[in-house]
Amino acid sequence: MSSRLSKLFEALTITTATSVRRKRLVKRQRRPFKLVRPPKMLHINMCIGRPYIQFYGYEATPEFLVRLAEEKCPEALRDRNDRDYEIDAMTQAHMLILARSGILPLFYMTCFKPQDGSVPPVWLDAFGMRGFNRDHIDEDELIANPIVDVQVLAVCSDIDRSFERRPTQAQMDAITELMGYAPQWWVGYGIGDYH
């Protein structure tokens, strides 16, 4: 009996070791898609004591996610009159995106919505100084250019470890096809540390 157990244990050990070597090999062969990291932000977000974090991803409003679920997986949705219909549809859309792209993690971030291709410096100053002395902020300029934000489905950020773990080209092709438009860099409100 003990010789059977020892042979079984030996077989499991060999199988596990082989399995681990294969996983390491596959992990080493995984090549992230080519992406130019944007220059680091110069503005310091006083809430986090470092430059604003930039996220690479797709604008993903609740309305867009509901439409995506209705188009791609209507059979998985609840009755439209159900009070949780929108939440359910957004969840189904997120699960669809995960399943088709295989990108983990995908995370939603609130970001500034650029105007004319850039984020007005007054937005960065106003947001980064909330809770601090805001005497140097031009309130008239902020009133003339109110902050506009957007929900972004991010695949990585400009933080080193996140950028190094960005998805593969095949994963990016799959998610871009599903979303229907190309990703871009966004400046996040971010006050935490992101993958």
Score class of each variant (00 low, 15 high):
residue 103 I to G: 03
residue 103 I to S: 03
residue 105 P to I: 02
residue 105 P to M: 02
residue 105 P to F: 13
residue 106 L to F: 08
residue 106 L to Q: 08
residue 107 F to P: 00
residue 107 F to Y: 11
residue 107 F to A: 09
residue 108 Y to I: 11
residue 108 Y to L: 11
residue 109 M to Q: 15
residue 109 M to N: 07
residue 109 M to T: 11
residue 110 T to Y: 06
residue 110 T to G: 08
residue 111 C to R: 06
residue 112 F to V: 04
residue 112 F to W: 08
residue 113 K to L: 14
residue 113 K to V: 03
residue 114 P to H: 03
residue 114 P to M: 01
residue 114 P to F: 03
residue 114 P to A: 01
residue 115 Q to A: 11
residue 116 D to L: 07
residue 116 D to W: 04
residue 116 D to G: 06
residue 117 G to W: 02
residue 117 G to P: 03
residue 117 G to Y: 01
residue 118 S to M: 11
residue 118 S to D: 04
residue 119 V to P: 02
residue 119 V to E: 02
residue 120 P to I: 03
residue 120 P to M: 03
residue 120 P to V: 04
residue 121 P to I: 04
residue 122 V to H: 10
residue 122 V to M: 05
residue 123 W to E: 00
residue 123 W to A: 00
residue 123 W to V: 01
residue 124 L to M: 15
residue 124 L to W: 02
residue 125 D to N: 09
residue 125 D to I: 06
residue 125 D to R: 14
residue 126 A to L: 05
residue 126 A to D: 05
residue 126 A to G: 00
residue 126 A to N: 05
residue 127 F to S: 02
residue 130 R to C: 06
residue 131 G to W: 11
residue 131 G to V: 08
residue 132 F to N: 03
residue 132 F to M: 07
residue 132 F to G: 01
residue 132 F to H: 14
residue 132 F to Y: 14
residue 133 N to M: 10
residue 133 N to Y: 12
residue 133 N to D: 15
residue 134 R to K: 04
residue 136 H to V: 13
residue 136 H to M: 13
residue 136 H to R: 13
residue 139 E to P: 00
residue 139 E to Y: 05
residue 139 E to Q: 13
residue 140 D to W: 04
residue 140 D to E: 14
residue 141 E to V: 12
residue 141 E to M: 13
residue 141 E to S: 09
residue 142 L to I: 11
residue 142 L to K: 10
residue 142 L to R: 10
residue 143 I to Y: 11
residue 143 I to T: 14
residue 143 I to G: 00
residue 144 A to I: 05
residue 144 A to D: 15
residue 145 N to C: 13
residue 146 P to M: 09
residue 147 I to C: 07
residue 147 I to V: 15
residue 147 I to A: 05
residue 147 I to K: 06
residue 148 V to M: 12
residue 149 D to H: 10
residue 150 V to M: 09
residue 150 V to S: 12
residue 151 Q to A: 12
residue 151 Q to I: 09
residue 151 Q to T: 12
residue 152 V to F: 08
residue 152 V to Y: 05
residue 153 L to S: 04
residue 154 A to R: 01
residue 154 A to L: 05
residue 155 V to G: 15
residue 155 V to F: 05
residue 156 C to N: 08
residue 156 C to E: 01
residue 156 C to T: 13
residue 157 S to M: 07
residue 157 S to Y: 07
residue 158 D to F: 06
residue 159 I to Y: 13
residue 159 I to E: 15
residue 160 D to E: 15
residue 160 D to K: 14
residue 161 R to P: 01
residue 161 R to T: 10
residue 162 S to W: 02
residue 162 S to P: 06
residue 163 F to I: 03
residue 163 F to A: 07
residue 163 F to Y: 15
residue 164 E to Q: 14
residue 164 E to F: 11
residue 166 R to N: 10
residue 166 R to F: 08
residue 167 P to H: 05
residue 167 P to C: 08
residue 167 P to V: 04
residue 168 T to K: 03
residue 168 T to C: 08
residue 169 Q to T: 12
residue 169 Q to M: 12
residue 170 A to K: 14
residue 171 Q to D: 02
residue 171 Q to M: 12
residue 172 M to C: 12
residue 172 M to Q: 06
residue 172 M to E: 02
residue 173 D to L: 10
residue 173 D to R: 11
residue 173 D to H: 11
residue 174 A to M: 11
residue 174 A to L: 09
residue 175 I to V: 14
residue 175 I to Q: 00
residue 175 I to G: 00
residue 176 T to V: 07
residue 176 T to Y: 12
residue 176 T to M: 09
residue 176 T to E: 10
residue 176 T to C: 09
residue 176 T to F: 10
residue 179 M to T: 02
residue 181 Y to I: 03
residue 181 Y to N: 11
residue 182 A to E: 15
residue 183 P to Q: 01
